[in-house]
Design a protein around this nucleic acid. Structure first.
Length: 289
DNA sequence: CAGTGGCCCTGTCTGC
DNA sequence: TGCAGACAGGGCCACT
């Protein structure tokens, strides 16, 4: 369940291990992860083989690798995607989907960049001319850790919307990189209920919430960064971050770390929301329900 | 146009 | 034991 901090950790790993390398050959082992590449798997391989990777960039949860052709490999990890660098010859992972053979450097052993994805919500595509910013994701807002993130615009966008603040946090066109876990954690820290309407929030509430989004992401990044030395991306729930630092997400029935009240779980958009019913009181009833 | 909710996908876990 | 169903969930898209 990679969210922004985990994706950033992956980006750093790609930056140090893949940037500057030449892709010798590409093998697509399952069509679904390249479904967004409409021209098909063979075209995907043809456009990436022989190219040099010039960088590793990220916006929100999207990653892209600018190539020397001016195109970019655009990637989304979905909820179970991994990018692994493995020695060529290492046994294939059970859910290996795409293999990029990297040209050996200085006569060293060859290795591979592997896209592994169990549930295949994620995927790869080649973005034509997308080296700077793939047009496919140009509509996505900057994330809260981006130096160019516009706080005033964020506050204005939130206060313009008649949806609950949690849904707004998850809307990639308002702010990117926030998923279900960090949304619940930030709302708990800011003591706001996710159903509070954007239009009814005060500027100070929104700014406090934004600060908490950044705080929880920064904490996760600090912890995630340390367990990543060998470019080993563990996205199967054991980042070490989950058990130690979560106050709300997944804590149903456990005492709130602030007031001791049992954390409540409710269904939300085909998933779950967790919150403290005392620290994060529901907004006043919104007519029939 | 803004807002809402369904769907995609597979592995794991729970309950009958 | 075996099977059905719930659950995990980001982002897209159809619909109101």
């Amino acid at each position: 369940m990679p969210e922004l901090p985990e994706v950033e950790v992956v980006r750093r790993g790609l930056e140090s291990h893949v940037v500057g390398r030449t892709i010798d050959s590409v093998q697509v082992l399952h069509p679904r992860p390249v479904r967004r590449h409409l021209a098909g798997a063979e075209d995907f391989a043809a456009l990436t083989a022989g190219r040099v990777v010039l960088g590793a960039a990220r916006r929100g949860k999207y990653l892209w690798l600018p190539l020397d052709s001016g195109d970019a490999v655009l990637a989304h990890l979905g909820m179970s995607g991994q990018m692994l660098v493995q020695p060529s010859g290492a046994p294939d992972e059970r859910h290996l989907r795409v293999r990029f053979a990297l040209r050996p450097v200085d006569g060293g052993a060859g290795d591979e960049l592997r896209f592994v994805d169990q549930r295949m919500f994620g995927g790869l595509s080649v973005s034509p001319g997308g080296a700077d910013l793939p047009p496919e994701i140009a509509h996505i807002a900057r994330d809260p850790m981006d130096p160019l993130f516009d706080e005033d615009a964020f506050v204005a966008a939130v206060r313009r919307r008649g949806s609950g603040i949690k849904r707004i946090l998850l809307d990639q066109t308002v702010v990117s990189g926030v998923g279900n876990i960090y949304a619940d954690e930030a709302l708990w820290r800011a003591q706001l209920h996710g159903d509070r309407l954007g239009t009814k929030l005060r500027r100070t509430d929104v700014l406090r919430l934004l600060a908490e989004v950044r705080a929880v992401m920064t904490a996760a990044l600090d912890e995630g960064g340390t367990s990543f030395d060998a470019l080993y991306v563990n996205v199967n729930g054991e980042s070490g971050y989950f058990d130690r630092s979560l106050h709300a997400y997944g804590q149903e029935g456990r005492a709130c770390d602030r007031c001791g009240t049992a954390i409540v779980r409710v269904s939300f958009m085909n998933r779950s929301s967790y919150f403290c019913p005392v620290c994060q009181p529901r907004p006043r009833a919104r007519r029939a329900a």
